[in-house]
Computed example of a mutant assay.
Amino acid sequence: MSKAKIIDWRRAAPDSVVFVSGPEEFLAGRAIRMVRETLKGQDDALEIHEIEASDYSAGTLLNLTSPSLFAEPRLLIIRGLERCSDDLISDGIAYLEHPTADTTVVLRHNGSSVRGKKLVDAIRVSSHATEINCAEIKKDADRVSFVQAEFAHADRKIAPAAVRALLDAFADDIAELASACNQLLMDSSETISESVVDRYYGGRVETNAFKVADAALAGKSGEALSLLRHAIATGADPVPLVAAISMKIRQLAKIFGNRSASPQSLGMAPWQVDRARKDLVGWTDDGLANAVSAMAIADAAAKGAERDPIYALEKVIHLISNKGLSESSN
């Protein structure tokens, strides 16, 4: 049974040894920063050292944590435990037996290898340690929970439609998503609505493009065309718009013939696979082939092959809204 305390990254706090595990670097960075800021707030004389685990040499841990002449509190941050030296493993295990008073040692391991397992196991059974697990945020549901928690932590409310708009605007980068949440938290609105999100981020090409694609895939041709025209009117270039919509169609094509494939084998995030499977309802082999061909034509048009690239985009939006089939074929 593990003796180390296990806490959520939002509750990161100092301990003799703080083990920050898991692949989500953004969350790990925030947890480590919270520990540092807490210690700094307790004593401005805090002495801070940061080292890389791969560069560690025997005795360094003892040297950096030994009490100084004036007994200042200390913080030692050791990053890259997944690449640690043998010396750090042995010194770390010994340190866990008798950690130095008024000293916090933070050890960061991203889980990319089993290197340092012996030290990790020792940390997890140590009563002197706290573990903060920073699991990767990949699934759409996890991202929704992250956004909701950011606002709940600040005792603020955000509407479900606003959450969806934020996730559409910041599809890949959790750091950008967190930054957007922080900016919205400074807004005076009691509840963050979709219109508030659009006011801040509606001009992002990514937001407009994915909204256009989502409306078309939902069969809402009129809404998709309206969004497309709004995107163009607010300065969006046709090339990235076509690229974003094409990405959605390529994801459908990847899933169509292999619906049981793992996200890893498809080169997609789990939430993207879940979304594509839902969007595929009603599509046929012929319809998908037509959509892929139409996107290629629209891409060429956007890059100068035709005089009116917007018309080509409108045509492909109509086609996608009709599951890739012309109205005459229905």
Rank of each mutant, 00 (worst) to 15 (best):
K118V: 09
E82W: 03
G92Y: 01
L88W: 01
L107A: 04
P160N: 11
R156P: 04
A152E: 15
A165N: 06
E97V: 12
Q42E: 15
A45C: 10
P99C: 08
L76Y: 01
G80N: 07
G59E: 11
T65C: 10
R74L: 03
L166P: 05
D173V: 07
M34N: 12
G80I: 03
R115C: 08
A169K: 05
S85Q: 12
D44R: 11
V120Q: 11
S57H: 13
D91K: 09
E47F: 09
N133P: 12
T130R: 07
F151Y: 03
T104H: 00
D155R: 14
D86V: 09
A53H: 03
L96V: 09
N133G: 09
H153E: 15
I77G: 01
A53D: 07
G111F: 02
D44K: 12
I123E: 04
Y56G: 06
K117T: 12
K138Q: 14
T104S: 05
E150F: 00
S145A: 15
V120M: 11
H128M: 11
A71W: 02
V147P: 01
L69R: 09
I174W: 00
Q42S: 14
I77D: 04
G116D: 10
R108C: 11
Q42Y: 08
V120G: 04
T38L: 06
A129R: 05
E97Y: 03
S90G: 04
E136A: 15
H153Q: 15
A101E: 15
I132S: 04
Q148G: 00
T103K: 01
G116S: 08
A175C: 09
I123N: 02
L88M: 08
S145D: 14
Y95A: 08
S66E: 12
A129V: 05
A149R: 13
V105C: 03
I48C: 11
R83M: 08
D173R: 04
S90H: 06
I78C: 03
R83W: 02
P67G: 06
C84G: 04
I51D: 07
G116M: 02
I78V: 13
A53N: 07
A141P: 02
R36M: 12
F170E: 04
K139D: 15
F146D: 09
C134M: 06
V114Q: 13
A101D: 14
F151V: 10
I77C: 02
D121K: 12
D168R: 13
C84W: 00
R115W: 06
F70P: 03
A135R: 14
G59R: 05
R156Y: 06
A58Q: 14
A149D: 15
I93F: 00
L62K: 13
